[in-house]
């Protein structure tokens, strides 16, 4: 009995039987939801205690369905084949942003990519530009340091005792709605070619977080944030490659947010 049948008896039973009757059909690229897929997972592995450089390892994962995610395939490997495989995931439903990785050459959350879309030959590697701790786990400390550098909290006028509500019109709230969606998964920052070559660039995620407060009518810290973002490592490093916008699992218009901050700096500092 395949390992997945132990965990998911309903799948291992009914669908495994189906799979033995007919091969996965991919007519014109269409994958039926009931197809049983055998997925070849190529994972870039690196164990700093043993390896001098990363290497690829191939795993074959059976009894998957098109509705399973890349994360499910990784779970199959970790739980039943090779417990040493290291990757991060917490909620596994696209909310916590722990499992950003390079799936088939592009940044994505492993919990959001369906096998029906990714196909049966999948490559997975760690996100770029941050030091790899092990396999798919990177050191996020530089990323969070850049996040903190833009003061990502509400800065109020110094004469405000903060006893009352801070009210805002729906229109004012709408102004920065897009950038409130960020889950700090680092998919945008680590997809940026400028960040790959220059790790001191504050990066799209930090700019998105700054945008969220700069365009908030209740916030009074714009000047301090623009000091950081108008600096040499700030928004002017952006070369508008649009990788960040394409990579964002929340669909935030990241490049647009960066351009808006650029224009605020231009208007403020010109």
């Amino acid at each position: 009995m395949p390992p997945s049948a132990v965990l998911f008896p309903e799948r291992g039973g009914k669908l495994a039987a189906l799979g033995s009757l007919r091969a996965p059909s991919r007519h014109n690229g269409y994958v039926a939801p009931t197809d049983v897929l055998t997925v070849t997972l190529r994972v870039k592995r690196f164990n700093p205690e043993v390896d001098r450089k990363p290497h690829w390892q191939e795993f074959t994962v059976e009894d998957m369905t098109p509705g399973d995610r890349v994360l499910d395939a990784l779970h199959q490997v970790k739980w039943f084949e090779d417990g040493t495989l290291a990757f991060r995931r917490s909620c596994a439903h696209g909310v916590c942003g722990s499992d950003a990785m390079v799936v088939n050459g592009e940044n994505a959350l492993a919990c959001q990519v369906l096998l029906g879309d990714a196909g049966t030959d999948i490559t997975v590697e760690a996100i770029r530009g941050l030091p790899v701790v092990k396999d798919l786990v990177v050191d996020m400390a530089p990323f969070f340091a850049q996040y903190r550098s833009v003061l990502p909290w509400l800065l109020t006028p110094t004469d405000d005792p903060g006893y009352g509500e801070r009210r805002q019109s729906p229109e004012d709230r709408e102004r920065f709605d897009d950038t409130t969606k960020c889950i700090l998964c680092a998919a945008c920052t680590t997809s940026c070619p400028v960040f790959w070559t220059n790790g001191s660039y504050v990066g799209p995620a930090a700019i998105v977080q700054a945008h969220r407060f700069i365009f908030d009518s209740r916030d009074a810290g714009t000047s301090e944030r623009l000091d950081v973002l108008g600096d040499r490592t700030g928004v002017w490093r952006c070369r508008t490659a649009f990788n960040c916008t394409n990579a964002c699992p929340r669909g935030i218009k990241v490049t647009q947010a960066i351009q808006e901050v650029k224009r605020v700096i231009l208007a403020d500092r010109a």
């Binding site: 290497h55 050459g105 592009e106 649009f242």
Partner: peptide, 17 residues
């Protein structure tokens, strides 16, 4: 397979390159 891969990217990345 070499240990380095090319980030797929879309038109914007290749326009940048």
């Amino acid at each position: 397979m070499s240990s380095t891969t090319v980030y797929k990217g879309r038109s914007g990345q290749w326009a940048f390159v």
